[in-house]
Each structure stands twice: as structure tokens, then as C-alpha cells.
């Protein structure tokens, strides 16, 4: 569903070029939740933002659902972006518009007629459990509620793919959990493929079926979370599994019982 083929990104910083992402390939199957973890500055956001060409790759190609985004003209790219939802760490909602108007904006931009827009806005706010906040402004909501409005907006055009850049990094643990539950539900019920960037190991572990570890612009490890017998080699990869055993009490218990039995 999402394919990066040898994409790289260089930025010019003064006289120097920095390689934010070195030539990297990554393929995400339909229906998967793929995580990208790594320390600050590893190039996670840059890679994610190349998935909808918010960042133009210096080299390489990006495919979404078989379509090469890097080969499209401006109009075609706009069209393609409608089936790629995106949410951000700081929500990026229109602060002078109500929640309903925030969702409606992307429908209007896609050319949907007024009556259908109204219906779809209601549906989307319903999905994230905020139908009662339709007439409120973002400033009147909590962080978690704002992120849910952002999710509703991202879902409005029935995307095949949802890109998430640190969606819970500004939220407390309990709110984080509720956002993750919504993302899980969207993945399960709407078959939306999710690509998620985070530096929170707990978040990646909770949500992702596959995780790529990024370090200084490179994917240094690819982990399939359904195969816990695999021994990670990177420090972050090991941490992913180690702390899974330490901090998640239910899995510790299960494993303990397993050992006894």
C-alpha cells in the first residue's frame, strides 16, 4: 500500500548538505500498522512526510496503492493526497473554525456538495466520539479531543492510508491510550493502512505490527512484532522487547506462567 523505493532526502544547511534520510526502501502492506521509531533527528518525520510528498525526495520514488506519487503533476498529486490522511503532534486544526468546519474544510476542498458534506462531517465526528462538540472551537477542547477532531478530519475523504507524526507525544498516558484505541479501531474497521512515527516505545509496541528502527537517516532494523522470538540487534530494538517484558504487567504474567508450565 505504501512503498518507498530508495528514497533519500538532503537538506542544505549553510554550505553543507545534510542527509536527513539516506537511500531507504520500505514497504507497508495493506491493512498493516507500520511504526517508525528512533531518536530525535533520526529522520523519522522526513521519511513519513515523503509518503505524501510534503517533503520531496531528493532521490527515489514513492508509491501509494500502486500509484507513483513522485511521477504526478500538481493536480494529480492533490487528487492522490485526498486518499492519504495525516495527523500531527500539534493537531494543526483551524483555530478560528468550529470542529465541524475543520472537518468540512477538507470535504469542501475535495469538491463535495454541501448536503453530503454535512452528513459526512457528522459521520466522522461520530467515529471519534465527538458529535456533541461539532459547534465548539478547538480552543475549547482538551488535547486529546483536538487530536480526535484531527483524526476525524483525516478520515473525511475515506483515505486508504493514514500518516501519523508523533500523534500522542503531546498527550498524557491515559489520553494517549484512548487515541491509540481510535487508531486501532480505524485500522481494523475501516481497513486503513497506518504509518506512524513516534519516539514513544510504548506507543509503537501497543499499536504496530511492524516497526522500523531509524538511526541517523537509515533504517537499521525491521521488526515483526508478531514474531517475538526474533532477537533485535539495535539498542532501540532490544529496548522495544525488553521493556515490553518489564513494564507491561499482563505480558509479564503470561510469560511467567508460560515458564512455570
Amino acid at each position: 500500500m505504501i512503498t518507498f523505493r530508495e528514497v533519500s532526502k538532503q537538506y542544505k544547511a549553510g554550505r553543507q548538505w545534510i542527509e536527513a534520510v539516506q537511500p531507504t526502501s520500505l514497504h507497508v502492506e495493506k491493512g498493516q500498522i507500520q511504526g517508525i521509531i528512533g531518536f530525535s533527528g533520526a529522520g523519522k518525520s522526513t521519511l513519513l512526510r515523503m509518503a505524501n510528498l510534503l517533503e520531496l525526495p531528493t532521490t527515489g520514488e514513492v508509491y501509494i496503492d500502486g500509484q507513483e506519487l513522485t511521477g504526478l503533476n500538481a493536480g494529480e498529486l492533490r487528487e492522490a493526497r485526498r486518499s492519504i490522511g495525516m495527523i500531527f503532534q500539534h493537531y494543526n486544526l483551524l483555530s478560528n473554525e468550529t470542529c465541524a468546519a475543520n472537518v468540512e474544510f477538507v470535504l469542501k476542498a475535495a469538491g463535495l456538495p454541501s448536503r453530503e458534506r454535512k452528513r459526512r462531517v457528522e459521520e466522522c465526528l461520530e467515529i471519534v466520539g465527538l458529535a456533541d462538540k461539532a459547534k465548539q472551537y478547538p480552543a475549547q477542547l482538551s488535547g486529546g479531543q483536538k487530536q480526535r477532531v484531527a483524526i476525524a478530519r483525516a478520515l473525511a475523504n475515506n483515505p486508504k492510508v493514514l500518516l501519523c507524526d508523533e500523534p500522542t507525544s503531546a498527550l498524557d498516558p491515559v489520553t494517549t491510550l484512548s487515541i491509540l484505541e481510535f487508531l486501532e479501531k480505524i485500522n481494523r474497521e475501516l481497513q486503513v493502512t497506518i504509518l506512524l512515527v513516534t519516539h514513544e516505545i510504548q506507543v509503537a509496541r501497543r499499536l504496530c505490527s511492524r516497526i522500523a528502527v531509524m538511526e541517523s537517516g537509515e533504517i537499521t532494523e525491521r521488526l515483526d512484532m508478531n514474531h517475538p522470538e526474533i532477537k533485535p540487534v539495535t539498542q532501540l530494538g532490544r529496548f522495544l522487547f525488553d521493556s515490553a517484558e518489564m513494564s507491561s504487567s499482563s505480558s509479564v504474567q503470561q510469560k511467567g506462567e508460560g515458564y512455570r508450565g
Binding site: M86, H90, N92, L94, A109
Partner: peptide
Amino acid sequence: VPKGVIEAAVASGAPMKHIIGGVLLSE
């Protein structure tokens, strides 16, 4: 106007006239 808000509109595939009217002038 925060850059991220404009970026969210670009990411949604909104054409320029909607970004100007619905995001820039509105915000």
C-alpha cells in the same frame, strides 16, 4: 498563521483557492 495548519491543508489535497480562503484568510 502557524505553518503546520497550512501544511495540514496542503496534505489534504486542498487547491490553492481553498488554502487562501479557508486557511490563510480565515486564520
